[in-house]
Design a protein around this nucleic acid. Structure first.
Lengths: 245, 245
DNA sequence: GACTCCTTTTTTGTATACAATCGCGGATTC
DNA sequence: GAATCCGCGATTGTATACAAAAAAGGAGTC
């Protein structure tokens, strides 16, 4: 019964014949569970449990877990012949490494973007300005729900990468960047307080891209993430590590 | 018969009870086949074929292929419900993106290294100097077999990463860096001609690390890879793309 | 009570069966 | 001859059975 009774397939979507591979479903759902914190940092991950929970067999779950492990959402301990997996803990050291890596990856994308021709840059700059203006509004009004802020910030960085990065850079960014959301969520309230600073940093990024200054663009993006890591570290320091175990 | 007759296991290594998971064996062997060019760039990769060739079942082969795909050794086309895999082609654009990414990843490691205390740095510098001296000797004598040169160069970069990078940075580097070997091998003769330049660039990296100048160290490492990409691009230009299809 | 040894249970890794999908070639039609 | 459709072999994705390994528990000993 567990793995979706096979006869009941005709009842699936008729029009959008768009059946996703269970592998992808498992990956997406698991990643979401981890990022949203519904799977606690440090907690064991057992293939059979996940399979039951998602109502699929262990096979696609295993594939998804392998990928999540390689990307860093899940870590293995006792890595002898049989691996035991756990949700990656959230620590100050890890957040530091993670933010610096993302800063460098995105910084490289920004460099490539700043090297594009003026027309392409202008189109991107327009979109970046629009997004950052929204953020600025929320920063000044003080309120605004965290998830909206997060979406806007994510959009900003996504535009950077999408408009300049090649397949490799995009893939690395797509694999790593979402992990910053785990830290963001954990300390959301404290971070959104300092939203104004981030908006200001974004403005400098946009300026550098607009005038086609690749070095400056890269440095500005790195600085944004570097300062973000410092802000996060201070919050972690004052609140204590919530997710190490 | 194909998947290793199960009864014949007692005959395996008696002392070193170190049975590697077939998953890991498959990953290692496949990666080696691709890097050494024994699986041609652009050629189809069929699970069952690999399984037969390695004398294991499709299950571990699939796991290995998933990982290789995520790392970029293998690419998927027709990515609808059924993926079809092929060995990643070697192109000028890809080499450019790859080298820049590696330069940034290693550059970050170099930055961290330059920030360590003077004692740690001195120990690392010593190892780097030794390796680079060997390279310099080979560069001046002109001869020297390419694989020795490659090993020395790889060792140099490996020391950089191992002595400073955290788990995430190390993992990314370990996944991506070996792919540069594919390009190296393809144009080995032309590259080794210019070995002297690379040795000189390494020397600047070592200097920066020695005096603890993080910015300079990072820039020097990036420059080494950036110039490497340019040297490679010139060679590809003159010889034509050998592995695109 | 702490330790060791052994048994039982849980969990992972591998092989294999089967179903869904894809791709290619050949037959058919105009 | 070119285009279209059909059907069959090739290939991938999923489920499941089983074996190896690790962990958990329990009896016995000191």
């Amino acid at each position: 019964m567990t793995p979706k009774s096979r006869t009941a397939r005709k009842s699936a979507r008729v029009s959008a014949d768009h059946r996703e591979r269970s592998f992808d479903v498992a990956y997406r759902k698991l990643r979401e569970l981890i990022v949203r914190g519904r799977l606690a940092p440090g907690s064991r991950v057992v293939e059979a449990d996940i399979a039951r929970r998602l109502e699929i067999s262990r096979t696609p779950v295993r594939s998804a877990l392998h990928r999540l492990q390689q990307e860093g959402y899940v870590v293995a301990y006792r890595t002898t012949r049989q691996a035991r997996l756990a949700v990656a803990p959230l620590t100050k050291e890890d957040s530091h490494e993670l933010y610096w890596i993302v800063g460098h990856i995105e910084g490289l994308a920004g460099r490539l973007l700043a090297q594009q021709d003026a027309d392409s840059r202008a189109r991107v700059v327009e979109r970046l300005l629009a997004g950052n203006a929204e953020l600025s509004k929320l920063a000044q009004s003080g309120g605004g729900d965290p998830s909206r802020i997060f979406d806007l910030d994510m959009g900003f960085h996504q535009v950077l990468v999408d408009s300049a990065a090649g397949p490799r850079l995009s893939a690395i960014h797509a694999a790593i960047k979402p992990q910053t959301e785990r830290y963001w969520r954990l300390y959301a309230s404290a971070i959104t307080d300092q939203l104004g600073k981030s908006v200001e940093e974004h403005a400098r990024i946009i300026e550098a891209i607009e005038r086609g200054d690749a070095d400056a663009a890269e440095r500005a993006i790195q600085l944004n993430w570097q300062l973000g890591a410092e802000r996060l570290a201070r919050v972690i320091e004052s609140l204590g590590e919530r997710g190490s175990w």
